[in-house]
Write a protein that binds this DNA or RNA. Sequence first.
DNA 1: ATAGTTTTGTAGCGAACGCTACGGATATAG
DNA 2: CTATATCCGTAGCGTTCGCTACAAAACTAT
Lengths: 208, 208
Amino acid sequence: MRTGRPRGFCIDTALDRAMTVFWRKGYEGASLADLTEAMGINPPSLYAAFGNKEGLFRAVLERYDERRKGLMDKVLTAPDAKSVARLFLEGVAEFTVDTEGRNPPGCLLVQSGLSCSDQDIPDALAQHRAEKEKALRERFERDRKDGGLPKSADPAALARYLVAMANGMCVQAAAGATAKELHDVVELALMAWPEAEKKPAKKLQRAV
Amino acid sequence: MRTGRPRGFCIDTALDRAMTVFWRKGYEGASLADLTEAMGINPPSLYAAFGNKEGLFRAVLERYDERRKGLMDKVLTAPDAKSVARLFLEGVAEFTVDTEGRNPPGCLLVQSGLSCSDQDIPDALAQHRAEKEKALRERFERDRKDGGLPKSADPAALARYLVAMANGMCVQAAAGATAKELHDVVELALMAWPEAEKKPAKKLQRAV
DNA sequence: ATAGTTTTGTAGCGAACGCTACGGATATAG
DNA sequence: CTATATCCGTAGCGTTCGCTACAAAACTAT
């Protein structure tokens, strides 16, 4: 059994509350006073658990990915490439406007620090965004192999296109765009999607 | 004639230098020490000329629009709607990767403060971005009237789509995307563009 | 019980922040 | 020239920043 006085707060709950602060104010705009107040703890507890402000932020990013893993899994296991694209963009449209008030509008990976006095923060965010682009690209590479995308299609470009679209929607959501406005953008974005050359093998269960 | 000791620095040059700092470090990441050093002046000169940090930032935003007005005018006077879309996105692709090292990658209106402790900054940026979207929308409304866009097209949605695309490209440029990668995205984005129902009246000089 | 370990709240550290008081410098006006 | 007006550099204001020293508290191990 672990010795010593037990921690008096829940790590994940504290991370969720810190996430909201970083999301709304950005990495540099979120002060330690803001964070500790929202998390309901004192600075020494924060530093004992997360090392420093940057450590807390990185833990928040991991927590963010964790919370969105379900949606991303659902997207990546869609039956065909165009469904992947549609589910991804529609998911972003719904998530970023935050109708339930759980999260600030936009996306933490875009909002919280595109430019900072410390370049490590933008780099960390870019890395997390790149992971999602990579997952889409790998999915589209498989689609291209089995005919779900034409041989002329460029899986990397398609993934980059979707991620760019998603990031742009985040910027607009943060500026107050409505869900309908974003869905209109999604419909337009999907017009660019290449048609399959032949019917994809729908009977086969796709590996993920 | 204006009395008193003349100002010892050029306002526009100082704004250009401050712009680079805000661009690279964001509004909150740019300290007064960073700014005064880059501008080559002392704090009292900065405050006499611009009021405070936020005043300087707003002046930088105006300067930014001014410097990009030429490109935007060229875009808005293109002969047809699709050319407007192409020139706009290709302009963004070239501008945001900054091959000449004059500017940091990305776009000041996206980079410098999506989230801040002071909400006025994100609001000011959103307003500047909205102006560009409005200009595109109004152009497309005219195109739709004279047949350059089909009646089924939604000018507001098209403008929003282009701006979202542009903002997303800015995010990727800031994360290190190359010019070619962005141009691939542009080609895809233009696949979504609606075809004109009839030939636009090319002979007429379009008013701006 | 006692020792050992970890977390907690208080209280405050040094540094950096945005900003400004002040006096000397440099111009025009008369 | 003197008077007035504006700008400049120095130097430092009060506040907030990220962070931590310290001792009491709360647990396990023996």
